[in-house]
């Protein structure tokens, strides 16, 4: 699971409406995989990224340091850092935990599993 995907996931448990994003990543096995650097794509994505959640998550995983607010989209160094965090950093194994309801979502073979039990839908 790349961090760009994590940035799009919110706890889907019915009635869980507080502290349900971002999901806290625990026991993460992190790996890096090279991706083509595409500054145009990154610029287009900037307004679709929940920035605070990304900063918090990358800090908790100890990956590259992002600024507290999005940097200058024409600053190549900022875009390179963003590229690495969003598109090259992956959680291979681990789990996500909802800070609101405590629900645990496993990550196996790089794929998050968001399925719920019957009483949670």
């Amino acid at each position: 699971m790349r961090l760009i995907t994590h940035n799009m996931l919110q706890c889907p448990v019915k009635g869980c409406s507080k502290d349900n994003f971002p999901l806290r990543i625990e026991d993460a096995e992190i790996e890096n995989a090279d991706a083509d650097f595409n500054p145009q794509f990154l610029k287009r994505m900037l307004d679709r990224i929940a920035w605070g959640a990304l900063v918090q998550t990358s800090f908790s995983l100890g990956v590259a340091k992002l600024p507290e607010s999005p940097g200058d989209p024409n600053d190549d160094e900022f875009l390179q850092t963003l590229h690495h965090v969003l598109l090259e950093t992956r959680v291979k194994e681990g789990r996500m935990v909802c800070n609101g309801c405590g629900h645990v979502y496993p990550i196996r073979e790089g794929i998050p599993n968001m399925l719920l039990q019957e009483n949670e839908v």
Binding site: M1, R2, M8, L9, N113, M114, L115
Partner: peptide, 25 residues
């Protein structure tokens, strides 16, 4: 995921019901 890798593209799969968990983001 494997089909993406085999064809040298990156897909981002999520196990979920329809688009559950991807909304409201």
């Amino acid at each position: 995921r494997r089909t993406g890798e085999k064809n040298e593209v990156t897909l981002d799969p999520v196990v979920t019901d329809l688009a559950s968990a991807l909304l409201p983001r």
